[in-house]
């Protein structure tokens, strides 16, 4: 019924390219920030001095 190129808006290609690059740049930055956050939170959650007591307790191995 309607080909893709027939349904495209009349917004100038340069403007679409600029916003496309803007989105790509923002998402690349946010992805890098997200990976950095994961590393930071994973590192923060590591425990080397935890002692667990009580029935069924399993000693936590040292990660030094």
């Amino acid at each position: 019924m309607l080909a893709t190129h027939e349904a495209a808006s009349d917004v100038p290609a340069a403007m679409i390219a600029t916003t496309f690059l803007g989105y790509m740049g923002l998402y690349a930055f946010l992805l890098a920030a997200y990976v950095g956050t994961l590393y930071y939170l994973a590192g923060k959650g590591r425990r080397t001095d935890v002692t667990v007591e009580g029935p069924g307790a399993v000693p936590v191995p040292s990660q030094a």
């Binding site: 808006s9 009349d10 917004v11 403007m15 679409i16 916003t19 803007g22 989105y23 923002l26 946010l30 920030a33 950095g36 956050t37 930071y40 939170l41």
Partner: peptide
């Protein structure tokens, strides 16, 4: 179509503030 550029910029702004809101206390 007529508001393409400001709509795109608005969405960039909303994405950035949404992520910043969550990351501000998660990061170092």
């Amino acid at each position: 179509g007529a508001l393409y550029l400001p709509v795109a910029l608005m969405l960039l702004g909303l994405i950035l503030r949404g992520v910043a809101f969550k990351f501000r206390t998660k990061m170092a």
